[in-house]
């Protein structure tokens, strides 16, 4: 079933296999290691893989797994900082807030990549993408506009682009 992906090119096959294996792994996580369940697991993973290929055609670019992993590993820490940041502001009697919207010009082309970056951004401390302006700049809502938000974001973007294999443009 996986082979029926329309645009599956030869080069993408390994990606497909990886996805299939990832889904199979998820299946194992869901139901446990009992091999009997593979009767359903294999077709299920294949179906999921097919759906995934349909919705998300294989990228025509190489991902830098190590760099991506670095992004992901940073995530819990970022999350913690973000949580602490909010908690500090929320629980402090003075409630130090200087909310506002900052436009941030990104080089990431519109599309899946940019969407993924935005999702990442929304987990960063103090930032929440709320849309794009007419020029295609990202509009970021910040809890504190006095913070060097754009600078941080630029750093994040660079890291992210390394992960997706386009780091040189940073």
């Amino acid at each position: 079933m996986a082979a029926s992906g329309r645009s599956t090119t030869r080069a993408a096959v390994p990606g497909t296999v990886v996805r299939f294996l990832l889904f199979l792994l998820l299946w194992g996580i869901l139901i446990g290691p009992a091999p009997a369940n593979l009767v359903a697991g294999l077709p299920a993973a294949a179906l999921a893989c097919w759906v995934s290929l349909w919705l998300l055609p294989p990228f025509g670019q190489t991902l830098s797994l190590s760099a991506l992993l670095a992004v992901l590993v940073r995530l819990p820490g970022q999350s913690l900082i973000a949580g602490l940041d909010v908690a500090r502001r929320a629980l402090s009697p003075a409630m130090p807030l200087r909310p506002g919207i900052v436009a941030y010009r990104t080089d990431i082309p519109p599309g899946l990549e940019r969407d993924a970056f935005r999702a990442l951004m929304s987990l960063q401390p103090g930032t929440l993408p709320v849309g794009e302006d007419a020029d295609g700049a990202l509009l970021i809502h910040c809890l504190d506009v006095d913070q060097p938000v754009t600078h941080q974001l630029a750093l994040e973007e660079a890291r992210f682009r390394r992960g997706t294999g386009k780091g040189s443009h940073g």
Partner: peptide, 8 residues
């Protein structure tokens, strides 16, 4: 895809 897997 994840949902499909969970559904099944």
């Amino acid at each position: 895809p994840i949902g499909v897997l969970i559904g099944i």
